[in-house]
Simulated assay, not measured.
Amino acid sequence: MAGPGGKSGPLQARLRLDKWLWQARFFKTRDLASEVVTEGHLRLNGQHCRKPGHGIGPGDVLTFAQGETIRVIKVLDLGQRRGPASEAETLYLDLDPRDDGASHLE
Rank of each mutant, 00 (worst) to 15 (best):
S86K: 12
K74E: 13
V75Q: 02
T69D: 12
P84C: 06
L78D: 01
Y92C: 03
A88E: 01
I56V: 02
R98V: 14
G67E: 10
T69G: 07
L78F: 05
D99A: 11
P97C: 03
D77T: 06
R81G: 02
I70F: 09
I73K: 07
L76Q: 00
R98E: 12
Q66T: 13
Q66F: 14
D96E: 13
T90V: 01
L95C: 03
I70N: 08
G57L: 07
I70L: 10
P52L: 10
D94Y: 11
I70R: 13
R71I: 01
G53Y: 10
L93N: 08
G55T: 01
A85H: 04
V75M: 05
G53S: 15
G57D: 01
G59C: 04
S86I: 10
R50V: 15
I56F: 01
F64W: 15
L93Y: 13
E89M: 08
R71S: 01
K51W: 02
P97Y: 00
S86G: 07
I73M: 09
D99Y: 14
E87Y: 06
G53P: 11
D99Q: 15
D99V: 12
P52K: 08
Q80M: 15
K51C: 10
P97G: 02
I56N: 05
V61A: 04
P97M: 00
P52G: 09
L93D: 06
V61M: 05
E68L: 13
D60E: 08
P84I: 02
V72E: 05
R98N: 11
P52V: 09
A85N: 04
D77C: 05
G67W: 11
A88F: 04
G79K: 01
L95A: 02
G67Y: 13
V61T: 06
Y92A: 05
G79R: 03
T69I: 08
R50K: 15
P84S: 00
V61L: 07
R81S: 03
A85Y: 09
D96N: 07
